[in-house]
Amino acid sequence: MIEENKFDCPVVIELAGVEKSFADQQVLAGVDLRVCEGTTTVIVGGSGQGKSVILKHMLGLVRPDAGQISIFGRDIAKASAGELKDVRRDFGVLFQNVALFDSMTIFDNVALPLRERTAFGSQQVKARVEELLQMMDLPGAGSKYPAQLSGGMQKRVGLARALALNPKIVFFDEPTTGLDVHKSNEMYRLFHHTQARVGYTAVIVSHDVPKIFKLSDHVALLANGVIQGQLTPEEFQRSENPLIREFVETTMGPIYSSEREESALQ
């Protein structure tokens, strides 16, 4: 039982029937997903279900075996390298392992997209990088190397780099994995703050249920290779889809019972 998507909004990302197999193993078996402009969509699911694979499809790093991936109305499943580069101009990405350039300083890491993609002079680059580092509570970290920073600080540098060019869509792959509660909260605060400021559309792959629900407009569960439902957090917690129910109960405990279950208990 797969629940219908029912959004009435400008769609910026749309996946339709995306299938992908690696060797003999089918990871995605017809994924349908829509992301509305300016909203936050969280993809949840067990480990190894292929959440990061969905993200890599949206980024154009992996091509699907079948199906369409349209971003701003352009199908990137079959796009040429040049078209893909064009679409990616509006992307910001925070990778799971952050993927900072480890032989460059923090300053150079954040400056790289500005130097490569804009006509900024060195003063403008410096000003923008300092502004971003300030925004991420990292003043004075510019001269350090990624390996000299803690995991939480590296993630913040990754976010600064992702936001350097005011992207329209930002992808987060497990933004809080490996961080303690305080550091996770700090990441969420920065996320909330920057989204309010820049107004980007966010796609987040996360394990951090239920906390991530507070930030999301839509939650999508990936299980058995398909999206079992893309719902608002409230609807998600009350969903009758057995896989969603199971997911909610195992991650949050059976505290959000459905009305039907409650009446059965009485």
Binding site: R88, A99, F101, L112, F171
Partner: peptide, 15 residues
């Protein structure tokens, strides 16, 4: 750089 996704990161920045 390939192993630690730094090349992917460049691609995703449209660099």
């Amino acid at each position: 750089m390939r192993n630690s996704e730094q090349i992917d990161a460049l691609e995703c920045m449209a660099v």
